[in-house]
C-alpha cells in the first residue's frame, strides 16, 4: 500500500503536462536484455528475467487483487506465459508493457472466473496496520496518524470504486512509472484515452482530498 504522503503528493502534483511520473528503473533494461537472451535460447536468463520483473509484477498484482497468494500465483502465471512464448519475442521490443499486459489480462480472467471481479479488484477494507513505517515516522502525533489512516482509506476506497480502466491507468502512470505510451500499450488503447482515464481518476481522488480538507 502506498504511503499517504506519497499518494497525496502524486495526486495533487501530477507531472507537468500530464506525462505521468517517469521513474528510472534499472530493471527495465535488465529485463529487456534478459528476455533477449532467453528468447535466443539461454535458459539461465530466465532467473535474471525473474529478478528484474517479479518485484514490480508482484506490486502491481497485489494492488489489483489485495491478496498476496493470488498475486503470487498470477505473477507465476505471467512469467510462465512469457516463458511459453519466448520464441516469439521480437528483438528490441520492450518487455515491461508486454509483461504488464499479460499480468493484467490474467488478473481480469482470474477475477471473471471467480465471479468476484469487484472484490478482486477492490482495495477496500484497507488494513489499518499497513500504514508504512515511513509515513508513520512522519506523523507528529496519534491524531495525525489517525487522520492519515482515514484519509488513505478513503482514497483507497475511492480508487477501488473507479472503473477498472481508470484505476489501471492511474496505477500504471503513478505507481509503476510507465510513460503514457507504455500505459496505452498495456491497456490496449490510445494515449489520449489513457490521459482521459488518468485525469478522471485524479479528479475523483482530488475530490476526496478536497472533502477531507473541508471536513478538517
Amino acid at each position: 500500500m502506498p504511503d499517504p504522503s506519497h499518494t497525496l503528493q502524486e495526486i495533487t502534483d501530477p507531472a507537468p503536462g500530464g506525462e505521468g511520473v517517469r521513474r528510472v528503473d534499472p530493471n527495465v533494461n535488465g529485463a529487456d536484455a534478459a528476455m533477449q537472451r532467453y528468447a535466443d535460447g539461454d535458459d539461465a536468463a530466465f532467473a535474471d528475467l525473474y529478478d528484474a520483473l517479479a518485484p514490480r509484477l508482484i506490486g502491481f498484482l497485489h494492488n489489483a487483487t489485495r491478496d498476496r497468494g493470488v498475486a503470487e500465483d498470477l505473477m507465476q502465471q505471467t512469467l510462465l506465459q512469457m516463458h511459453r512464448t519466448r520464441g516469439t519475442f521480437i528483438p528490441g521490443a520492450p518487455v515491461m508493457p508486454w509483461a504488464f499486459a499479460i499480468a493484467r489480462r490474467l488478473t481480469i480472467d482470474s477475477a471473471r472466473r471467480r465471479r468476484v471481479e469487484r472484490r478482486i479488484f477492490s482495495d477496500a477494507a484497507a488494513d489499518d496496520d499497513q500504514v508504512t513505517s515511513a509515513a508513520a515516522a512522519a506523523m507528529v502525533n496519534a491524531d495525525d496518524l489517525l487522520h492519515a489512516r482515514r484519509l488513505e482509506r478513503r482514497v483507497q476506497q475511492r480508487l477501488a470504486a473507479l472503473p477498472e480502466n481508470q484505476r489501471s491507468a492511474y496505477r500504471l502512470l503513478q505507481q509503476e512509472g510507465f510513460s503514457l505510451k507504455e500505459a496505452a500499450e498495456v491497456l490496449g488503447t490510445s494515449v489520449t484515452a489513457v490521459k482521459l482515464r488518468a485525469h478522471r481518476a485524479y479528479e475523483a481522488l482530488r475530490a476526496v482530498l478536497r472533502e477531507a480538507g473541508e471536513a478538517t
Binding site: 535466443d40 530466465f46 525473474y50 529478478d51 517479479a54 519466448r86 520464441g87 519475442f89
Partner: peptide
C-alpha cells in the same frame, strides 16, 4: 519476495519446454 517463490517459478519454467526463437 521469498526465495521459495523464486525457486517455485524457476522450477515450473524448467519443467515446461518452450520453443526458442529459431524453433519458432
Amino acid at each position: 519476495m521469498s526465495a521459495a517463490l523464486r525457486m517455485r517459478v524457476l522450477a515450473a519454467a524448467a519443467a515446461e519446454a518452450s520453443p526458442t526463437r529459431s524453433e519458432i
